[in-house]
Amino acid sequence: MLLPVNSTRSAYFRGLSDITPAVVGLIPFGMITGAAATAAGMDPWLALGMSFIIYAGASQLAAISLLIQHAPALVVVATILVVNLRFMMYSAAIAPQFRHLSARKKWLFSYLLVDHAFALLSARFPPGDTTQKPGTKAEQQVKKNRDDYYFGGTSLLWVMWQISNAVGVFAGTLIPGNWSLDFAIPLVFLALVLPALQSRTHWLTALVAVTAAAFTTALPMKLGLITAAVAGVAVGAWLDSRAVPVK
């Protein structure tokens, strides 16, 4: 184990310092998220509440885009869920490391589980790493260090996300509407999705979704979005299940 096993304090601060580079990269993203909300005419308190309650950048941007288009509630919530489904994969991977926690701490650590937090913990404490015998004092200490390390990193991430969102929300109220800051939302999505299209099946999925979206824009209540997403996922999963060697 890379951490000194006897110092809780150092585990917490080690988490803080390890997460710092990611936090530096996150600050502009948080400011853009906040600014996009209020520049698009969203109530500042609602924008702040969103970063606190949802606490997930990409889905906040999706929600802003849909809320200012007056999409129906179910469509907005379904989109937030779908954009955040990747957290289930993190949850499955990280669950064994959180098994010893109390129920309250499980929920707290779940709330704090974001992309960077997952990357941080799996880099420093790889799952299945059992260098200590179960039940021993040393093993207890490793678990405690791991918890403190995770809480150190994620607490800094959380605080800086809230601050950068708040700064953005304030800036957004000052930015004139003709700056078209809401255009940052699709741009962020493009930047997120393009590197994620790693196989031909992924490309076909995106192509089907975009085509379906283009042909269903006339549908009311943003139902085109749901149609496009379902069509894309269905084609992707179907191609994947046929295991055609399309990679």
Binding site: Q69, A209, A212, G224, V233, G236
Partner: peptide, 29 residues
């Protein structure tokens, strides 16, 4: 998790994000 759910999860981002982008680019302002 059932296999088919895992399969769907793999392609969610590739479908949803482009579908969100399209109307924001084409039909705003």
């Amino acid at each position: 998790v059932p296999k088919w759910v895992q399969r769907c999860l793999k392609y969610v981002a590739a479908a949803v994000l482009p579908a969100l982008v399209l109307p924001d680019v084409l039909f705003r302002d």
